[in-house]
Design a protein around this nucleic acid. Structure first.
Length: 405
RNA sequence: GUGGGUGUAGCUCAGGUGGUUAGAGCACCAGAUUGUGGCUCUGGGGGUCGCCGGUUCGAGUCCGGUCAUCCACCCCA
């Protein structure tokens, strides 16, 4: 038997129904915040991710589905969504057009990792990206948008925020940190590697010995420049005013290189070790880094598989089940179903069955109405209808049946 | 890449120390005297016991290998 590849899974009913329901609600909320839908290719030039996500990240370092296509292009299946949207933003010269551009997207991402709970090689994200708005109010709005989506599904979470500084305050801090790290030779091997590649990432090392050492390390939050500090304060003020509970996590650094200033993560218990359900932040330098005009930007992504694990979905009864009690009535319900299908969802049973069997089938398939034609109905040109939710039944002329919503 | 757990019916799982036609619950289909769903009862269909090899008169059971899957490390959505 041919099976799906490791870490790839099919999404079939009823999960697929839940998936669509999530997309519908999340899209609606994103639109309420002024975002428009954007779709970008799943395949991009490898260079795009090397230059955005960064060489020091695990994603670029070891998780990309990378290959050479038949035209000799070095390409990858996108491991995350932001880079492609930024590429598109620049390619279509929206950076030169000016103004604010807000996009939401959803779709498959690919990372070659060992699968585990909440982690797949092909997974799906719903994300938003906002370009051209430097105000910290936008950071606040973006966090509120993510929160609104989680709240829509009554998902319990805790919100962690941090500031990663800007080109003014981050480099001097990095130097101090590296200096500190060089004076401590007992940090783990991973951290020694990080020290040279991307020193900030040592801060969220899980190794207890390292964590013990880092309690003495210089803190980025103590080294923010005036503007970064002010904005981080303003962000907290905004969140507090909106009644959003949050926790400052000075070790929240995130594994992608492009973040600046605001970084945030929504975590939820009940997801196992992979507890981040949404994450994002500001990336003011990325557009420029990829060859566009300097443009401030901020965004986030939600892990769809993870969020689907966190809420229940009961599809509601919908549509009409049509069944015949004897062979002579089958042509009639077939014709009736075709007409009815111009406006409504119709589940049609071709085999004549007992009334009991039809009701059972209609119930199981979650139809709202069981509509049956037998000898009596055929001679009187009517349809017997039972509302399976209200448990009410009636016999109506065929014309009236076709009018029903 | 590393570690641990698990592979028996569509699903969840039983199957002491090897022994005849491999079981249950759920699900599915059909019935329970006249055309009424969810509950109950009866019956039915459905399994190369992950795969390969070894030990044995005999392997679902023991041994080796292999594959798959889950969880964790790591990292992140």
């Amino acid at each position: 038997m041919i099976k799906a590849l490791r870490g790839m899974r099919d999404i079939l009913p009823p999960l697929s129904q839940k998936y669509l329901y999530f997309l519908q609600e999340a899209s609606r909320i994103a639109r309420n915040y002024g975002f428009e839908y954007i779709q970008t290719p799943l395949l991009e030039e490898t260079q795009l991710f090397r230059r955005s996500v960064g060489e020091s990240s695990d994603i670029v370092g070891k998780e990309m589905y990378q290959f050479t296509d038949k035209g000799g292009n070095d390409v990858v299946l996108r491991p995350e969504g932001t880079a492609g949207v930024v590429r598109s933003f620049i390619e279509h010269k929206l950076d030169r057009q000016g103004g604010v551009h807000r996009f939401y997207y959803h779709g498959s991402m690919f990372r070659y990792e060992r699968p585990q709970k909440g982690r797949f090689r092909q997974f799906h994200q719903f994300g938003v990206e906002s370009f051209g708005e430097a105000s910290v109010y936008e950071d606040g709005a973006i966090i509120l948008l993510a929160k609104a989506i989680l709240d829509r599904f009554s998902i319990p979470y805790s919100l962690k925020i941090n500031s990663l500084g800007c080109p003014t305050c981050l480099p001097p801090y990095k130097e101090r940190l590296v200096e500190f790290l060089r004076s401590h030779d007992d940090i783990c091997d991973d951290c020694k590697r990080r020290r040279d590649l991307n020193p900030i990432r040592v801060l969220d090392c899980k190794n207890p010995t390292c964590q013990q050492i880092y309690t003495q390390a210089p803190k980025l939050l103590d080294h923010l420049c005036g503007q970064c500090e002010e904005e981080f304060g303003k962000l907290q003020e905004l969140l507090t005013a909106q009644g959003v509970a949050y926790e400052i996590d000075p070790n929240l650094v995130r594994g992608l290189d492009y973040y600046t200033k605001t970084a945030f993560e929504f975590v939820s218990s009940g997801l196992g070790a992979q507890n981040a359900v949404a994450g994002g932040g500001r990336y003011d330098r990325l557009v420029e880094q990829l060859g566009g005009k300097p443009t401030p930007a901020v965004g986030f992504a939600i892990g769809i598989e993870r969020i689907l694990d966190l809420f229940e979905y009961e599809p509601k009864r919908e549509g009409f089940y049509l069944g015949a009690l004897d062979e002579e009535c089958v042509d009639e319900i077939f014709d009736l179903a075709t007409k009815k299908r111009a406006r409504s969802r119709v589940l049609l049973e071709y085999r004549p069955k007992s009334l009991k069997a039809h009701l059972k089938a209609a119930d199981r398939q979650k139809a709202r109405y069981a509509c049956i034609i037998g000898e009596n109905e055929r001679s009187s040109k009517t349809v017997w209808i039972k509302d399976l939710e209200r448990k009410e039944e009636k016999v109506v002329p065929k014309e009236q049946f076709l009018e029903m919503e």
